[in-house]
């Protein structure tokens, strides 16, 4: 949109028939962006405005801060917010490290490379609900595969999803399992773009593989890492389908995340106004995290 207006402004400076052409261009430009503009207005801008309005009005009309005050006393909100921070702090780095390790592995000249790549990528192709259903079975107390395996080693079973200490970690495992394969693809693409001369040079200089990885590969992958990190961070606040399937946020909200709580407030408790405030909190959190990531990492990135 901004580019269109720049063109239009530039053209308008030319006098005479050029002005008419400029006007035509402007109209043409607007016509070209109109379809996306309509869609964005209807499905992004309008909901944003509506959320803002809902957040600061009372259910029976009138401007109010009552929803904001409610957040202060809402223990469930505090719990799910902390849960979400823990969830992000664990799943984002873990899936990135695993994705990188898998990418390095399947980038090498090894047997069955295509098969391995496919295997690592498979969880990504599965719908989240399907993945969650599979893991729900894995975690079944006493006769799920995990508990059965424990029994083989003489260990007692565990109610993985029904115990507050393990419910959230169990869900984090599913998320990492599902996300890592997706991020691997980006790292793999990054690795494939790397000039083989770099590695030859390192070898000639007698640098160890670890040194080469640390000083050459990793820095060159930083743009990929930034991208993956932002995507992973957003996903950690946006993905909640598995919670519906696996725990419904329980026990006692131990595995509930912010977006799941917003869903509950909006669609189970029918409190659109409170849900609107919570949505603003979610969006603000995401913006802040993205901003921090760009600020901190930008300086350490070498774009080629």
């Amino acid at each position: 949109m901004s580019r269109t207006s720049v063109i239009a402004a530039g053209a308008a400076a030319v006098p005479g028939t050029a002005a008419a052409r400029a006007r035509r261009d402007t109209i043409g430009g607007w016509a070209l962006v109109a379809p996306s503009l309509v869609v964005i207005a209807a499905f992004t801008l309008y909901p944003v405005v509506l959320s803002l309005v809902h957040a600061f009005t009372a259910p029976r009309g009138g401007v109010t801060l009552q929803q904001v005050h409610a957040m202060v006393d809402d223990e469930v909100l505090h719990k799910v917010f902390v849960n979400n921070l823990v969830f992000a702090a664990v799943t984002v780095p873990a899936s990135i490290v695993i994705a990188l390790a898998m990418a390095l592995w399947v980038n090498g000249k090894i047997r069955g490379r295509a098969f391995l790549r496919l295997a690592f990528f498979t969880p990504t192709v599965l719908p989240m609900v399907a993945a969650a259903s599979i893991w729900l079975y894995f975690y079944t107390p006493s006769y799920g595969p995990i508990d059965r395996l424990l029994h083989v080693f003489g260990l007692p079973g565990h109610n993985w999803l029904g115990t507050p200490e393990t419910a959230l970690p169990a869900i984090m495992v599913v998320t990492i399992w599902k996300e890592a394969g997706f991020f691997m693809i980006f790292y793999l693409a990054g690795l494939q773009n790397m000039a083989p001369e770099l590695e030859e040079a390192s070898r000639l200089e007698g640098a160890s593989a670890w040194y080469h990885f640390r000083r050459v590969t990793l820095p060159l992958l930083m743009p990929t890492t930034l991208f993956v990190m932002v995507v992973a961070m957003t996903a950690s606040f946006k993905q909640v389908e598995h919670i519906f399937v696996m725990t419904r946020g329980g026990p006692d909200n131990a595995s509930s995340l912010l977006l799941y709580y917003i869903y509950k407030v909006a669609f189970t408790f029918y409190d659109e106004h409170y849900a609107a405030v919570l949505t603003l909190v979610l969006v603000a959190t995401l913006l802040l995290l993205a901003f921090l990531q760009f600020r901190v990492l930008e300086r350490r990135i070498h774009y080629r």
Binding site: G250, P251, D252, A254, K264, T268, F269, D271
Partner: peptide
């Protein structure tokens, strides 16, 4: 009344007690 919010709090309380957190 109240769209299930009160009973949701009861459900949470039951789970908290059963899992030993309260």
């Amino acid at each position: 009344h109240g769209n299930g919010r009160a009973t949701a709090a009861l459900s949470d309380a039951i789970q908290a007690a059963l899992t030993g957190t309260k």
